[in-house]
């Protein structure tokens, strides 16, 4: 069967000429652009977060998920891009964002009052509208069982919607939710809390890049 299909293809190609050849060729994906996180070790690990793809950043509380998010927003807004933060529980802190170098006038902040379904709808609408360099769906404080209610079909639709755009879609949660729909998964773990005398200095964390069955790690620090 395979041999006859190949023969048929070869016959059609030769009949129609070379100008029709691409129609029968393999649809090669263009080289993905990426958005750097601004954290050297994570960028060396991942090469930046993919544009036109879905990235999941997950981990427990105080593992540096929001720190990575703000660093990403700072990078994107400094490139004059517009970004959107879909904040499911309303935890976004403008003061921290400004200290991290985020240009607040370029950030569309949407608070969903703890409703993950509203967050999903808002993300869907923003992805369809286009024009945003970075869209962050923040489910970090959403209970895992509620976040898991978002179906794989929804995640697939989101991924498909951003596929041929310059938008980097990032989901932040406690666990993996999009599974195979995500282009990149970053698992963050807290390794140490840093104290300077009696002052909180920051925390040290490790990021594991989990995709394509290769787990690689990078350490980074967050401080004040």
């Amino acid at each position: 069967m395979a041999t006859s299909a190949a023969a048929l293809r070869s016959h059609i190609s030769s009949t129609l000429g070379l100008r029709w050849d691409p129609a029968f060729g393999v649809d090669r994906r263009p080289v993905q652009e990426s958005l750097p996180t601004g954290i050297q070790s994570i960028d060396e690990l991942t090469g930046g977060l993919p544009r036109g793809g879905l990235t999941e950043i997950f981990g427990a509380a105080s593992t540096g998920r929001t720190t990575v998010m703000l660093s990403l927003l700072a990078q994107a807004t400094s490139r004059e891009e517009f970004c959107a933060v879909i904040d499911t529980t309303g935890a976004f802190d403008p003061e921290s964002a400004e200290c991290a170098g985020v240009r607040l006038p370029q950030i569309l902040w949407i608070r969903c009052g703890g409703n993950a379904e509203h967050a999903l709808k808002a993300t869907d609408l923003l992805v369809q509208a286009g024009g945003f360099g970075l869209i962050v769906m923040d489910l970090a404080d959403t209970p895992p069982q509620q976040a898991r209610r978002i179906s794989l079909a929804s995640w697939f639709r989101l991924r498909h919607a951003v596929e041929k755009t310059a938008t980097a879609l990032v989901a932040i949660a406690q666990n993996v939710n999009a599974a195979s729909c995500s282009t990149l998964q970053l698992n963050l773990r807290q390794t140490q809390v840093l104290w300077s005398g009696k002052l909180l200095k920051g925390l040290r964390a490790e990021a594991d890049s989990r995709k394509h069955y290769r787990v690689r790690s990078a350490a980074f620090s967050a401080g004040r």
Binding site: T66, A91, D93, A140, L203, F220
Partner: peptide, 14 residues
């Protein structure tokens, strides 16, 4: 562009 850094700003979630 903000420089690449090893030390990011520690964010607060409210």
């Amino acid at each position: 562009l903000p420089a690449e850094t090893h030390l990011a700003f520690l964010a607060l979630r409210r």
